[in-house]
Amino acid sequence: MKRKTRRLYMVLVGLCALGAVATIVLAALEDDIVFFFSPTEIMEKQDIRTDQRIRIGGLVEADSVKKAADGVTNLFTVTDLAHSIKVEYKGILPDLFREGQGVVTEGYFKGKTLIADEVLAKHDENYMPPEVADALKKSGKWKEGEPLTEALKNGHVPDADKAKDY
């Protein structure tokens, strides 16, 4: 084989490999990314896809946290103060999960209920997840820095400015 032909082959092999990687990445991006919605956006959607992982964020509604009959499934609603979504989560809720606190949950929809397999409450009690802050701002019920006590009778006042760092 001549040097030029060999170089051509090398380039071709390289391009094929690159193409393969790009295909895998694009396919994975198409299927495996998780979309984030606020409760209002979910309500506005006509059809909620049940085969797509969805992440929703908001506040855990006051007095909404209950245990199902099996004792380990938690039922609660996540609200952006305009609309609420029912969530079911089997397992131990994170330590910082409280009513009135910001929460992000992820899973698949079954009807109008999100069957969550992941519940994220943030590591610091003064901290509001940016996604939640966004959802609340979008619903028009809350502005940055404004206390939430009016809307939520219970618990802490989430304050996005006071985020503790580490």
Binding site: A28, D31, D32, V34, F35, F36, E131
Partner: peptide, 12 residues
């Protein structure tokens, strides 16, 4: 708003 998590990385 999207998040890219474990399923993406596992697949790729």
């Amino acid at each position: 708003k999207v998040s890219v998590g474990a399923p993406f990385y596992n697949r790729v």
